Amino acid sequence: MDVTGTSQIPRQRGERLVDTAVRYAEERHWDVLAGAWLEPVAGVERCSCAAADCPSPGAHPLGRDWVNQATGSPVVVRRMWATNPHASILLPTGRTFDALDVPESAGCLALARMERRNVELGPVTSTATRRMLFFVLPGGAAKSPELVRNLGWPPDAIDLVARGEGDYVVAPPTRVGRHGPVQWARRPTAANRWLPDAEELVSALAYACGRDGRRESG
């Protein structure tokens, strides 16, 4: 799903993960981290961490010190993938962007509503686990609960997860276990380099999550 047309960071068929990771650092100035990856074991793809019960196969940091290992240097990024060429691409939040994470059904509803209202949006990812993540300015995660409360929703009553400092998102075209690749619902472009504040998106996202929750409970 892609509604933006030409991408600043085009995804080429057969493109190496390292090239995509480098362009995230060069073109968007995002910090990048090489994460775990999928590898075949006895004909079955397993997470490189070797944990049989890994909750995020092929899509999580490799060590506890990952926060300090993330980098915006293209040279260091290439060095990371030279060691692990199949590594997943992770983008730490709380630095150049935060992310508002909602169910795909709510995300699509909110996206359509915001487009009708000409809301300026940043990049949005869509995962094969049926989640959508809306990129916003840093600091958005910290104030998101209060923004939700001000709209009349207890933050734990709707499925809106704010990802900020100390967290990360999985970047396209990383594959997450058997679910498939993460994709761009709205790709990074020159037009959306300047990210919206969380306050500009929370109302539509909270409404969509609340409506989505009522439909599921019904």
Rank of each mutant, 00 (worst) to 15 (best):
C47W: 07
E199R: 14
D31R: 02
A42Q: 09
Q8I: 05
G180T: 11
A87L: 12
A142E: 14
S56K: 01
G180N: 13
N68C: 11
E199S: 14
D212I: 07
L62P: 00
G107Y: 11
W66C: 02
R46N: 00
D167A: 14
A110C: 05
H29Y: 07
R16S: 14
A190Y: 08
P123C: 01
R214G: 14
A50C: 01
R211Q: 09
E104S: 11
L147W: 04
I9F: 04
E15K: 01
L160P: 15
E199A: 14
N68W: 01
V3P: 09
D19G: 09
A25C: 09
A141R: 06
A171I: 15
L90T: 02
L151N: 09
V102N: 07
R214A: 13
A52V: 15
E165R: 15
S73Y: 01
V161W: 05
W37T: 00
V136L: 03
R215H: 14
A21D: 03
W184S: 13
M1D: 14
L62S: 04
P57M: 02
S203D: 12
E104P: 03
G35V: 13
W66S: 12
H60S: 08
G122V: 05
V182Y: 10
P92Q: 04
L201I: 09
L100G: 03
R187W: 00
E26K: 15
L133R: 15
P172H: 03
E104A: 15
A106T: 10
S105N: 10
P172R: 03
R116I: 01
A52M: 10
T125A: 06
H60N: 02
R23F: 08
P188Y: 07
H29S: 11
A42D: 13
A162Q: 06
W81H: 11
G139H: 10
L33S: 10
E146W: 12
P61N: 00
P74M: 07
P74C: 08
A128V: 03
D31S: 11
V22C: 02
T4V: 13
R28F: 03
F135P: 02
A171P: 12
G94L: 08
E104N: 06
T4I: 11
R78Q: 14
T174Q: 01
A21G: 09
A82G: 15
P61H: 00
Q8Y: 01
G164T: 10
W30S: 11
L195N: 10
V77N: 05
V32E: 12
R163I: 10
G139M: 01
L121I: 13
A141D: 08
A59G: 04
L133C: 08
L151H: 11
A110F: 04
A185L: 14
T127S: 15
P196W: 02
G139Y: 04
R78W: 06
C209R: 01
I9H: 07
A171R: 03
V170C: 00
G210A: 03
E15W: 02
M132H: 08
G94C: 09
S56V: 00
V41S: 05
N192M: 09
A208Y: 05
A157M: 04
H179G: 00
N118M: 09
D98N: 08
R95A: 06
V32R: 12
D31Q: 06
R113G: 00
V170S: 01
T96W: 01
V176T: 14
